[in-house]
Structures are given as C-alpha cells and as structure tokens.
Amino acid sequence: MKPLARYAALNSYIEVSQAVGLEPARLLRGAGLDPASLALQDRWVPAGAVARLLELSAVESGQQDFGLLLAERRRFANLGPLSLVIREEPDVRSALTVLIRHEHMYNEALRMRMSVLNGLATIRVGFEFGEQTETRQATELALGTLHRLLLGFLGSLWQPLAVCFTHHAPADPGTHRRLFGSAVKFEQEFNGVTFYADDLDAPNKMSDPLMRNYAYQILDTLEPPRESTVLNRVRELIELLLPTGQCSVEQVARSLGVDRRTIHRQLSDEGETFSSILNATRTELAGNLVATHRYTLTEIADLLSFSSPGNFSRWFRGQFGCSPSQWRNREHREA
C-alpha cells in the first residue's frame, strides 16, 4: 500500500500559500485533502497527495522555492511525539540516529541514510511514494527542515559543507542562498547535506539526562503507523475524503496503491465491507456535527457527501430515529 504522512508535513501551508497569492482551500481539495483537517497535525494522509500539492502550489504561484518557504517555518515540535525523544538525546549523533530510525513515525515515504567516511558525515534524503510523483518541493522541504534541526543542535552560526540537490537551480536562488549560503549545490548526484563528522559528537544543549528515560517510555507506547490495519486506513481515508466529494472505494484504493478488489477482499477478511465502514464513519461524524452549531444542516449534508439535504435527513432518521433538527435541539437542551 502507498505510504502515509502526518498532516504536520503541511504545517504553515495556509500562511505560505496565501502569502504567495494562492487559494489554499481549492488546492487542498484538488489534491484530495481536507482543509479543515490541517489543524489535526497527527492525522495521516497519503504522502503522494502531499507531494503533489506542493508541486502544484509551486507551479501556480511561480515560486520554485515553495518547499523551502515552508521549511523556514518548521519548528522542532512538528516532528510530533518523536520530538520529545530526540530533544533528550545526549549528542547530535544519537539524536540523528533516532530521527532516521523512526522516520516512519512522521512520514512513511521518507528515506534518510547517514554515512561517515574520511572525517565527513553525509545524510542523504529520498522518497518512495509508490507512484510516479515529482519530488522537487518535497525534497527541498525535507532538506530545509533537516538543516533547521541541525542549526538547533549546533547553533545558529553552524554551516554545513554542502547542501546538495539533484535538480537544477531555480531561476532565482535567493531563498536557497539565504538559508544555506554558499553551501548550496545543484545538479548533484544525491539530495542531502554534508558536514564535518566531528559535529556529530557535539553535545545536545537541550538534553536533560533525567528526562531521557521518561522520553523513551513515551516512545514505547506510541503505535507505529506502519502497523495500521487496512480497516483503520480505509476508515481514516473515508473521513478525509468525505468533505472533498471524492469518497469512493476506487479513490480509497488509489490512495492506498491497490485495486478495489484488494480493498474488498482485505476488508472482508476483517468482517467488514466498504459500505459498512462508510456508513459507520458517516454516523459518527453526523452525530458530532449535528450536535454542534458550527455548521448548518445543509453544510453538514455536503460535508458528508450526500446529494441533497433531503437525502441526508432521511438517512439520519434511519440511523438515529429522529430528524437532524430534533437531534440538535435535544443536544442543546441537555447541554
């Protein structure tokens, strides 16, 4: 199945896209992503959809440095729960080792490898999306973020020996020069960053030895996304695709990199069907959405991909035994 990435990969996407004159909601929906879910940083979405969104944003805005503009706003916390562990590692080497070993906890498509040879350390960055996808912006976002992490460990005055990209230089390399200085190089044999190996032994100034054991206890309790069942992935994709109007077994199958028959067979092995999961997900969402006054009932019908408010009302009565209006009024009285 195709790999997933956390929504945190798009942290600050709204702000950056608006700053360069884009309509972020339209582009997100076009990529099969839900704009409202950007606030849910730990939710998982198809990594390929994130990469396509970044490429489309760069093309429509004319900003060849779009991925770097996002990287500039990256914070340590965007790594999610893993940041708690990395922060407590005693030195740069061990922090990078944890980052690379657990890369699947924030992006299943990301591939990072570190090598040390002749006094030099090199971290190479690549992606495996399971499909043919342009990766320029995703690569620049990943390398820009890695560079910022290294600055956090080694100090704002630290400079790498080289920041390498396999693609050609943009028409205006100003952002690249500003972030990487003279170290940036294009049309190289790999994507990655090279620096002195001695830097790996630099102490991590953020680390507190007394907190390290607690951080690893947290890591041990986290459920790796790569072990997610087909059922869970289908359920989450349905929830993500419903507001886009593109929620079908065919679309879910494409997002997971399989055909619809594979989806039906694997769900059947777990005693479910696509229709049963779709209905269960709609039921859960409908109960929550109707109980609040954030959306009108017509908007909720649209968010749940019903063809009309009337169809939504009839379905809702069948599930809950009352109309959406009655449910909303009852919840309001009980509150």
Score class of each variant (00 low, 15 high):
F76R: 04
L157R: 12
V193M: 03
E103W: 06
M211V: 11
L241Y: 07
S313N: 12
D172H: 11
R136P: 00
R317L: 10
A25T: 09
N11T: 15
T139Y: 07
I218H: 06
N279K: 13
N191F: 04
S182D: 15
V59C: 07
I218L: 14
P173G: 04
A183T: 15
L304Y: 01
L33E: 00
A9W: 11
G21N: 07
Q188E: 10
L267P: 07
V92M: 02
P243F: 00
P35A: 04
F186S: 02
W44M: 01
D259R: 10
A109I: 01
R74S: 14
S255M: 12
Q41P: 04
S156M: 07
T296Q: 09
V125R: 03
V184I: 12
Y106H: 13
R73F: 01
Y216C: 05
T194A: 14
L141H: 13
D42I: 04
L267V: 11
D199C: 15
A253C: 12
Q251D: 06
R52S: 08
G130S: 02
R101L: 14
V234S: 00
P170F: 00
D65K: 01
L28D: 01
R113I: 06
D259N: 15
Q137K: 08
H293C: 11
N107G: 09
R6W: 02
G119P: 00
S207L: 08
L242A: 09
A162P: 03
L210D: 13
I14G: 05
I300D: 01
L303T: 02
E23L: 06
A5K: 01
H264F: 15
F180C: 08
S228P: 04
N311G: 15
P46E: 00
V258S: 05
F306R: 00
G21L: 02
A291Q: 07
G152Q: 12
S255P: 03
F127E: 03
R233A: 00
I300F: 00
G174A: 12
E272F: 10
V59Q: 09
R212M: 04
G310W: 11
T244P: 05
A121I: 03
T281Q: 11
